[in-house]
Design a protein around this nucleic acid. Structure first.
Lengths: 203, 203, 203, 203
DNA sequence: TATGAATGAGATTTCATTCAT
DNA sequence: TATGAATGAAATCTCATTCAT
């Protein structure tokens, strides 16, 4: 597929078209989260979005493009949250706590779960590059907060790269078992995870 | 496929056959880790194991059965490590540290990486039940260690269910980025993760 | 496959779709008659129907479902003919003669030859049950005509079960050698068979 | 495969080897009768004969050669019975009756059922020619008895070709439903069929 | 915008057959 | 004679994708 480059692909930006695009991305994110990229079928996505499979191709160039937009959109939200935390002026622990909560909000709500399943290998090279770059930007942003805490002496002197990955791994794995309406609410999950993970950082 | 029930499926237990079985499981574990269950093809597994695709069916009933044995074998190793920690008589923090290190050893070496990708949905119901039961047994074993530490007052009073999942999520996510021979050694990774995660538990 | 239960499976009942469905069933009936169910390939059926193999799956759930509809359709025609004979009020010999002629008409024309090859073992259990039930209904209908003749004294006192099977066996075997346009016309065949078999029944 | 031409293919004519050959042919005949040539697998034949699949190839050149010997052997027995009837000097009706009974004996006992399933299309050309020739010889022999009866005035003046095929069709179809030990004995079946079919011939 | 119908490529799986032992 | 192990070819089926309407 690939075609893209602009960022808006096809489909006139009419109100209705935009709504359909979102519905498709939401349906796809759910399908990818359930079965992974390879395991999710266009038929399934179309059914969840209440469209015919053929119609998906009016809005997107192909399955990989849908994956790309899912991930791209999720990463945008994550980046925004990280940036917000960075400029909050709060102490490092509070900043990390904010990021953790924001990350879980993104990852656990309907549309964005896809960000956890960052299956970049499925993307063709040009799209992959763009997602990887954005993903790395996010990881660097979180890592910078960790490093700042270490430098300030409030966090123990651990390798920010590894600690950041441990945190993100814990956060992303929630999509595999969390179900809205289940025994654990997203809010309580976020509280416990933030407490636990921030505590792990402290000196 | 499903067929199974015994536990050794087909193929006489000759020395040669046993070696081939292991080679297939190892190749499959690598393929599943790289592309997930749906994304990995029998052709790819066969190539990695240096066999013809048809020959895989001499040893296993089908792709799902291969997945099952991958996961089953990994879980056996994880359970053994958890049991060992439980009977060590060490303080809770040390026990959890042991489990974390053992888990990472399992998950990061060639054959067993599959355990991290516990894609149980891909399995037919009877096999799924068996894997899920074993997976839950493992999770309960780790959770019991956490709960024991909470009860003993050495860990903070957090929900053992959630904390256990956070830990396991962090550990399992390593297979997505860790590459042997890379900048980070498995040993250092294990040290940092154990330190960080155990610290998070402490009161 | 199995899927079915309704009776019309997939594919909207558009005029064009219905024509394609029929073409597939006709092609399949010919293929099954030539090589049997196991010996006939989907490729062959697709070629005869001038479609791609993949397209067959748009209309039917699988090979077994195609077999099912072939047989089901044939049996419907046979049953209709038997019912018609039963209500004709003619003497038993004339009724049997009608059924024989109608059966040969069904079995020797393009679409319906499949009924002769009632390879029910190839069907998955649920479909098999339905075909067997219908087949038995037909056999009972013919047998009832025979038994009526015996009771009326016009037929010799032979076991209606066995005589019915002998008749149906003779009729069905025609598909193995009869070829339209050959030395024997379907009409003459029907006349000779009816004469011969009815004569065998008479007291 | 084809290889053959002699009539004894491989395998030294030792007593033991000969017994194994017969066991294979018997197993194959049963398998072919149950699922047809294409539907029966070498694995299944081997299992029924209590051998390994590979071992079948020591005794026969391939699946088609096994089919050939099954049919060839059956046809030999049928021909012998027909010849016997022809030289008995009995009246035509009695001769046909003998042939019918003999045919059913061949077709319904374990080894020879294959003769009913004369799936000549599955054979490679050279073997097919030989089976077809023998089959035609048998059909001609039966037809000659029918024609003799017609000429002698004891049978009605019907086309001997068609009547012969009707008779053989009825006889061969018995293998589809007859089960030894079932409600109908082979002897009674033979009596009823002979009565019914001979009666059909009479003037 | 939307979709029914169609398809090429490729997936998993089976099967007759071979070969080393 | 016998068989465990291996395989090429083909079978059924799925799936992303296209195209005429």
């Amino acid at each position: 597929m690939v075609r893209i480059s602009n960022g808006r692909s096809k489909a006139s930006g009419s109100r209705r078209a935009e709504r359909t695009r979102r519905a498709i991305l939401q349906a796809a994110a759910a399908a990818f989260r359930e079965h992974g990229y390879a395991g999710a079928g266009m038929r399934e996505i179309a059914e969840k979005a209440e469209l015919s499979p053929a119609n998906l191709y009016y809005y997107f160039g192909g399955k990989d493009e849908i994956l790309f937009y899912c991930q791209d959109h999720s990463l945008d939200r994550l980046l925004a949250a990280a940036d917000e935390a960075a400029v909050s002026g709060e102490p490092p622990a509070a900043q990390i706590g904010r990021v953790i909560r924001a990350h879980l909000r993104c990852v656990l709500d309907e549309l964005d779960g896809a960000s956890a399943h960052l299956e970049v290998d499925a993307l063709p090279a040009p799209l992959r590059r763009r997602v990887v770059a954005k993903r790395d930007r996010y990881e660097r942003a979180v890592r910078a907060l960790v490093a700042a805490g270490v430098d300030a002496g409030s966090f123990a002197g651990r390798d920010p790269i590894l600690v950041t990955r441990a945190i993100l791994g814990a956060l992303n794995s929630t999509v595999r078992w969390f179900r809205p309406g289940g025994a654990v609410s997203a809010a309580r999950l976020a509280d416990e995870y933030a407490d636990f993970l921030v505590r792990g950082l402290l000196a």
